[in-house]
Amino acid sequence: MIRSGKIVVPTDFTEQSSEALRRACVLAKKFDAEVHLVHVIDPSLYFETDMISIMPLDEISEAQHEGAKKRLDEQAATVDCPVITHLEDAVTEAARTISIFAGKMDADLIVIGRHGRQGMLEHMLLGSTVERVVRYAPCSVLVAMPHGLVGAAEAE
């Protein structure tokens, strides 16, 4: 299961991604692996009034990266295992960027947190980032379910 000793954990700084990080640390200790916490930054700004996308100004981009780096470091400090943090600028949608990153890292496993339920129409049109990561991933993917969904999924 863990050959190269690398586990990638994508984060959007939610409790679900924190849970995925905790689970990745348990596996990392068991298999003597590295944990790589990655956050994908979307470099575009969207203005609804004009419906255009422009590249952000240098100051905005720098502030966005600094804020994300601070949050990555804070999240990494919440677990009791060493965590290597990464910021990735989106080259495409987040799921593909995560998968490309995992491939470049030669990762053995991606541990990703699943969010709560979304509406049926939204799911049909967009799917979820987790589903797309599973589809595009170059390695195995462990989906960490939120605590509230585990019992709900069994009830269905």
Score class of each variant (00 low, 15 high):
25 C>R: 09
46 Y>T: 01
43 P>R: 03
32 D>R: 15
28 A>M: 01
36 H>A: 01
27 L>C: 05
33 A>F: 10
51 M>F: 09
29 K>E: 12
50 D>S: 15
52 I>A: 02
28 A>D: 01
37 L>T: 05
49 T>H: 13
23 R>S: 12
40 V>C: 07
37 L>A: 09
52 I>F: 10
35 V>E: 09
23 R>C: 11
29 K>V: 05
51 M>I: 05
39 H>M: 07
32 D>T: 07
26 V>Y: 05
25 C>Y: 08
40 V>N: 02
46 Y>E: 03
42 D>S: 08
43 P>S: 05
33 A>I: 04
47 F>W: 04
52 I>S: 13
24 A>P: 15
48 E>T: 10
44 S>P: 06
34 E>D: 08
52 I>L: 07
27 L>V: 03
37 L>R: 11
26 V>M: 09
48 E>M: 15
52 I>W: 03
30 K>H: 08
32 D>M: 04
24 A>D: 15
29 K>Y: 01
24 A>R: 13
38 V>G: 00
43 P>H: 00
39 H>Q: 09
30 K>V: 05
45 L>S: 03
34 E>C: 10
29 K>H: 04
26 V>G: 05
51 M>G: 02
45 L>Q: 03
50 D>L: 09
25 C>H: 06
26 V>K: 10
31 F>C: 07
36 H>P: 02
41 I>Y: 04
37 L>V: 11
26 V>L: 03
38 V>W: 09
45 L>W: 08
